[in-house]
C-alpha cells in the first residue's frame, strides 16, 4: 500500500530560527499516530504543512500522493482538521456552522443536514441544534468542532488536543470513534500533551524535539528502550531526568 503521508527532507525556518530540521516520514493508511513533543518543538508547524495551510518550506511533502504545494486544494479535500484553540464563529448555531463547512466541502445539502443532525445527536446536542454557540460550554463547542472536522468523511484526520473540555463519557466515546475510524482505514494524526492518553490511543508514536524526530515507533518498542510509561520516555528524551530533585528544589524556595 502506498503511504498516505510521505515527507522527504522537510525543513522550515522563521528568520534565523530553524523550526523544522530535515524531517523524513512515512505514514501508512489506517495508522493512529501519536504526535508529541515539548512546547515550541515544531508540532503545529508540521501539521500546518501537512494540511496544506503553509506552503513555505523546503523539501517534499506528499499527502495521498499529492504534492501539498502543487495542489493544496486536493489535499484539503481529503483532510479533516480539528484545531486546538476552540476557534469557532460562535454567533452561528451548530447547524449554520456545519452547513457552512459542509458546503465548503461540496457536500449535498441533504447529506449535510442528515449527517450533522445525526452526529450532533450522538454527542448529546440534539436539543441545541439551533441555539447560538456563544452560550455553549467549552466542551459543547469542542464537540461541534470535532464534527466539523469529520463531517466530510476525510481520509486523513488531524486532531490537536481534541479532548479539551470534554466530559469523561465523551472522552471514552471519542477514543472509540478514533479506533473505529482507523479500522476503516482512516489515518489519524493525534497531537497532545497528555501522555497517558497518547500512550493508549496510538499505534505509533512520533516524538519531535527542536525540529527533529527523536523517537519513532510503537509504544511497546519505546517502552523497551526507555522505561515503563510514555511520560518517562518523553522526559528522558526531551528534558532533565531528575524531576524529583527539581520538585525538591522547587519546594526549597520556601526556605529562602
Amino acid at each position: 500500500m502506498n503511504p498516505i503521508i510521505q515527507v522527504r527532507g522537510l525543513s522550515k525556518s522563521f528568520g534565523k530560527k530553524q523550526v523544522l530540521n530535515n524531517i523524513d516520514l512515512d505514514i501508512q493508511p489506517g495508522q493512529i499516530i501519536g504526535y508529541i513533543g515539548p512546547n515550541g518543538a515544531g508540532k503545529s508547524t508540521t501539521v500546518k504543512i501537512l494540511t496544506a495551510l503553509d506552503g513555505e518550506f523546503e523539501g517534499e511533502v506528499l499527502v495521498d500522493g499529492i504534492d501539498v504545494r502543487k495542489d493544496p486544494l486536493a489535499v484539503k479535500r481529503i483532510v479533516g482538521y480539528i484545531p486546538e484553540t476552540a476557534e469557532i464563529y460562535d454567533v452561528l448555531t451548530p447547524m449554520d456552522f456545519l452547513n457552512l463547512v459542509g458546503n465548503l466541502h461540496d457536500m449535498e445539502p441533504e447529506i449535510i443536514k442528515e449527517r450533522a443532525t445525526n452526529m450532533l445527536r450522538h454527542f448529546g446536542l440534539e436539543g441545541n441544534l439551533d441555539k447560538r454557540m456563544d452560550t455553549f460550554s467549552k466542551g459543547m463547542k469542542q464537540k461541534v468542532l470535532i464534527i466539523s472536522g469529520l463531517i466530510h468523511n476525510p481520509k486523513l484526520i488531524f486532531m490537536d488536543e481534541p479532548l479539551t473540555g470534554l466530559d469523561a463519557n465523551t472522552v471514552i466515546m471519542l477514543k472509540e470513534i478514533i479506533s473505529k475510524l482507523s479500522e476503516k482505514g482512516k489515518t489519524i494524526f493525534y497531537s497532545s500533551h497528555m501522555m497517558d492518553i497518547v500512550e493508549k490511543v496510538s499505534d505509533r508514536i512520533i516524538l519531535i524535539n527542536n525540529g527533529s524526530i527523536i523517537a519513532d515507533g510503537s509504544f511497546e518498542a519505546l517502552k523497551q528502550q526507555r522505561g515503563e510509561s510514555l511520560e518517562k520516555v518523553f522526559t528522558s528524551l526531551t528534558g532533565n531526568r531528575n524531576y524529583s530533585d527539581k520538585a525538591e528544589d522547587f519546594l526549597n524556595a520556601f526556605n529562602q
Binding site: L53, L73, K76, R77, Y81, P83, E87, Y89, L100, L104
Partner: peptide
C-alpha cells in the same frame, strides 16, 4: 478575522 485561519483555510477553498 483570525478565526478564518482555523475554519475556512483548512477547507478546499481557493
Amino acid at each position: 478575522d483570525v478565526r478564518d485561519n482555523y475554519i475556512l483555510l483548512p477547507r478546499p477553498v481557493n
